[in-house]
Design a binder for these strands. Structure first.
Length: 700
DNA sequence: ATGCGCGACCTTTTT
DNA sequence: GGTCGCGCAT
């Protein structure tokens, strides 16, 4: 066995990688080299069996991409046909082949949450149920599907009263509509694969034989349907390797079931359990403090992370008068550490529980002229113009796709309004047609005004032109759509830019593959991380990331834990959220809160988060700022980190740019007013003393 | 068919 | 405070 695969690993990691057959649960603590273990195990296994017979599932495209990349580095095998991907993409791949067994066609559309909402709202309108309830209903339906509860199951167990009864009716109808549209929503991808395997043992057998080993990443995030899928596929050989950390389970609200990891041995009785407890990321202090937090949770698998790293700086705990002071403090601290030359802006992250918290933080960063990026805002593929373009593509491939048709029949505006559409809907219903077929039928029937017919005919012609074209790739088709539909004339410039980017991304992609996977793309994975900016990110969004310096803001009752978390289980999940945030930090960690915070409309009096009471004071530095107008200067802490002067015009250690000599580091800066002098070390030139007034320097 | 004003309600969100 | 959706007005 070549040793490259086993090089530089600790004993537990080796044990996990070389385990041969049978179920295994790897409890991988934060920063314990989890990805490394999975990728190496993949490489290890593929020495004995074909890499194509290992099913590797992740939750995000990003994780799948990283894994592929790292496996490619390790192994010289051809990885084109491997099964490394998200749960949804793997199911998509299986269903594209096998779904005819369930009465769908294999060119089905995939509805994302936006399409899903549109369809539910349409049904609610028809059922004359208050449309405003759609969000709750979509959530419930999604929850049911996550448990593999089909409409039929739900009907047979249903109470049959009030809301539940109406929910059942909507669910039945929704699922029926999806099938008529030849469409699957995200949850269907999993649920229907499970259903397929359960109802067609021969198909299951085929994949069971195909996948000799199964590797699951982020196992703590699996929902019941996903777990069922894994159990079905691994039944027989039981070669399932699940990697996860129950302490980082923060997606309970999406149906993730923490019990899957807590009671793994119940389903896989002889499971080997490996704990990865050596942390390669954080200082001892950070680990100690975060360990004390997570220890408060009752339902967890005991683990104790340890680190080879230094004790490190104390964790800073701060209490401010208001959220404004909190933000100012954080911004100033970042500035100081940056100017000191210790860290780049990319090394900092500010984490928070809810998105609205970013606003005041952004204000403070802008005020200090610190570049930043808010991570995880609306994803590229969810933008209206992108969704419109894809809807045209989708409809042209799958004419039954009513949701896409409703989306674009009057976009851009071609005068087909609600009354015309409602005639189309009625005619479709009467004849059991899709909307597209209904429009075609109506052209020959009576009962439409000539004007309406003309407009519908124009729409049919556009769709016909799009469908009958021959294209060399997806980009080619999109360009045709963009022009044929007149979208290019109706769109504003900023959005047109997005469309161009979309077309670029489609370049060289086969149309069927592109359309079938487009709903599964998030577009977040290619966000350039190279920019030197501070990251602002929610605690959820921070999972899987790491930063040398982390600030967690808003550690107050009502924010973290969020006021909606009432049951002990929900509070535990909030605690895990804090734990995830803390364990992102490599060197320095600040935990802060404010006594007064503007939340929604009013200013609220806040109490410190209950989680803070379990922090051992001996490894913490407490900073309390009484509510006052006085500018909160961060000197107290800066002294602790290393004594350095308050920021002057140009702080010692800061970087400046000279028009001729380029970037240099400030050695000294003295004098004041007109006579200020500065000493700068330019790497290429050497140390220079300049009169600030004439030097024409620029901060970098 | 579009535009505006009013009221309700606020999380997190891998796909 | 700010977004989103509805209903009314043109």
């Amino acid at each position: 066995m070549s040793n490259a695969i086993l090089e530089g690993l600790n004993a537990q990691q080796k044990e996990a990688i070389t385990h041969s057959n049978g179920p295994m649960l790897i409890l991988a603590g934060a920063g314990s080299g989890k990805t490394r273990v999975i990728t190496r195990r993949f490489a290890y296994l593929s020495k004995k069996i074909s890499p194509n017979s290992i099913l590797t599932v992740t939750f995000t495209n990003k994780a799948a991409g990283e894994m592929k990349e790292r496996i490619a580095e390790l192994s010289k095998k051809d990885l084109k046909k491997t099964w490394i991907g998200t749960f949804h993409s793997q199911c998509n791949r299986i269903l594209r082949k096998e779904i005819s067994a369930l009465g769908y066609q294999n060119d089905f559309s995939i509805y994302d949450s936006d399409d899903q909402c549109n369809l539910v709202r349409h049904i609610l309108k028809e059922f004359k149920i208050c449309e405003a309830l759609y969000k709750g209903i979509v959530g419930r339906i999604s929850g049911l599907k996550a448990q593999s509860v089909t409409p039929e199951d739900f009907l047979s167990n249903g109470e049959g009263f009030g809301f539940e009864e109406r929910l059942a009716r909507v669910y039945v109808r929704y699922q029926d509509e999806l099938k008529r549209c030849n469409a699957l929503d995200f949850d269907d991808l999993i649920m229907l694969t499970v259903k397929l395997f359960e109802s067609h043992p021969d198909v299951l057998e085929k994949y069971r034989k195909k996948f000799k080993h199964i590797l699951v990443d982020e196992f703590q995030d699996t929902n019941a349907a996903q777990y069922n899928l894994l159990k079905l596929l691994s039944s027989g050989h039981s070669n399932i390797c699940a990697v996860g950390d129950d302490d980082q389970s923060i997606y309970g609200f999406r149906g993730a079931n923490i019990k899957n990891i807590l009671s793994f041995e119940k389903d896989f009785p002889k499971a080997k359990i490996v704990k990865l407890e050596q942390n390669y990321r954080s200082t001892k202090n950070i680990l100690h403090v975060s360990g004390c937090i997570i220890n408060e949770n009752q339902q967890r698998r005991e683990k104790t992370l340890w680190s080879d790293r230094d004790t490190g700086e104390q964790v800073c705990q701060c209490w401010f008068g208001s959220e404004g002071e909190e933000s100012t403090y954080i911004a100033k601290m970042i500035k100081e550490l940056y100017l000191k030359g210790m860290y780049n802006y990319t090394d900092f992250a500010i984490l928070y529980r809810i998105n609205v918290q970013s606003r005041v933080l952004e204000d403070a960063l802008r005020h200090e002229k610190i570049p930043y990026r808010v991570v995880g805002s609306i994803s590229f593929y969810q933008r209206k113009e992108i969704k419109d373009m894809s809807a045209y593509m989708r409809l042209s491939i799958n004419p039954d796709d009513n949701v896409s048709l409703r989306r674009i029949i009057n976009t851009p505006n071609r005068g087909i309004g609600a009354s015309t559409l409602s005639k189309v809907e009625q005619y479709a219903k009467k004849n059991n047609f899709s909307l597209f077929a209904s429009i075609k039928g109506l052209m020959k029937a009576n009962g439409m005004t000539a004007a309406a017919k003309e407009k519908l005919d124009a729409f049919l012609k556009i769709m016909n032109d799009i469908s009958s074209g021959s294209y060399k790739d997806s980009a080619d088709m999109l360009r045709t759509i963009y022009i044929q539909t007149g979208y290019n004339e109706f769109i504003e410039e900023a959005r047109a830019e997005n469309v161009r980017e979309f077309i670029d991304a489609a370049e060289g992609h086969n149309i069927d593959d592109f359309v079938s996977s487009i709903s599964l793309m998030s577009g977040e994975e290619n966000a350039d991380q190279k920019e030197n900016v501070v990251s602002l990110v929610t605690l959820h969004g921070a999972k899987g990331l790491e930063f040398p310096v982390v600030f967690i803001s808003g550690l107050e009752e009502g924010v973290l834990p969020y006021f909606k978390a009432e049951s002990p289980q929900e509070v535990d999940e909030e605690r895990r959220l804090l734990y995830v945030g803390m364990t992102r930090a490599q060197d320095l960690l600040w935990l802060s809160g404010a006594r007064k915070r503007r939340l929604f409309a009013k200013v609220q009096e806040q109490e410190p988060s209950r989680f803070l009471s379990h922090i051992p004071q001996e490894v913490c530095r407490m900073i309390v700022k009484p509510a006052s107008k006085a500018t909160s200067s961060p000197t107290k802490v800066s002294k602790r980190i290393k004594s350095f002067k308050p920021v002057s015009a140009y702080a010692i250690g800061s970087r400046v740019k000279h028009p001729k000599w380029g970037v240099g580091v400030v050695r000294d800066c003295y004098g004041d007013g007109e006579d200020q002098k500065i000493t700068v070390n330019f790497p290429a030139i050497g140390v220079k003393r300049l009169a600030l007034k004439f030097a024409n320097l620029e901060r970098v």
